[in-house]
């Protein structure tokens, strides 16, 4: 209990932007950092939205009639990776998702095992940072359920997710354990198409599309992302985009 309340305090103070005022620009303790004025405005946005979302509301969900006929695909639409190609040829029968790091029982899941877990279907609005938006239906297992099934350790603070095309991103538990954060293997009632990230993609509904990684390759629970790669928390942050994309 003591540890948790201390953690809350750390989260709270840095989320209020005190961290930046004192010179650092960490959004949250042990989290991704960004220097300069953009680090400051990211921190303001993050702290404000965490306050607004403190009761963990769900995003809107639509009926099947709202599903968009046009749902663009951008970036990788068919990974050029020998293992992926082989797996795709077998209908992803040999596809495996290792979940490691700060969990009690590191486990590697097959697609069939994910499908056997409790599923959630959600028809939501996907917003891309390029400006387009589309409504799609996603079916998958909540990440919170998957992590609970193998025991997330108390010191775990972030979930790092890697994709077969080299993309990677990280999520703090606030977003990772949200009920609508799912590992989706179905789209609009069918299997997830290759262009949309088959066999399994992530859905993080309260942030822009670039946080919803496609072609999942691995999941790792960690205590800190500050020493991961450049310490900025994701591949796109290293390209100059915000780690937190709730805008």
């Amino acid at each position: 209990m003591h540890d948790i309340s201390r953690r809350r305090l750390l989260l709270g103070t840095s989320a209020l932007g005190l961290g930046s005022a004192l010179g650092g620009c960490d959004l949250i303790a042990d989290g991704p950092s960004r220097s300069g004025l953009y680090g400051l405005s990211d921190t303001l946005t993050f702290a404000t939205q965490r306050f607004l979302l403190r009761d963990q509301p769900l995003v809107r969900e639509f009926g099947p009639e709202a599903i968009s006929r046009v749902f663009p695909t951008i970036n990788t639409t068919d990974p050029d990776n020998p293992d992926y190609r082989r797996s795709k040829a077998q209908g992803f029968a040999d596809w495996r998702l290792p979940v490691s790091g700060l969990v009690e029982r590191p486990t590697t899941f097959s697609l069939a095992e994910l499908r056997a877990m409790p599923a959630r279907t959600q028809i939501t609005l996907h917003a891309c940072e390029q400006g387009w938006s589309a409504i799609g239906g996603w079916t998958g297992v909540p990440l919170s359920h998957l992590l609970a099934s193998i025991g997330l350790k108390r010191e775990a603070r972030f979930i790092v997710i890697r994709s077969v095309d080299g993309w990677w991103d990280s999520y703090d538990l606030f977003d990772a354990l949200h009920p609508q954060t799912i590992l989706a293997y179905g789209m609009n009632g069918s299997d997830l198409p290759v262009a949309h990230g088959a066999p399994v993609r992530l859905r993080v509904e309260r942030q822009l599309g670039y946080k919803s990684l496609k072609y999942l390759a691995s999941i790792e629970a960690v205590a800190s992302v500050s020493r991961l790669s450049q310490g900025r928390g994701s591949m796109v942050s290293e390209l100059g985009f915000s780690w937190y994309a709730g805008i």
Partner: peptide, 24 residues
């Protein structure tokens, strides 16, 4: 209204403008 975070807290914004693209 173009913020997925803010609209998760205040979906009324979508109603006010008639959707995300209308808001844009």
């Amino acid at each position: 209204t173009m913020s997925p975070g803010v609209t998760a807290a205040y979906p009324e914004l979508f109603t006010l403008f008639g959707g995300r693209q209308s808001a844009r």
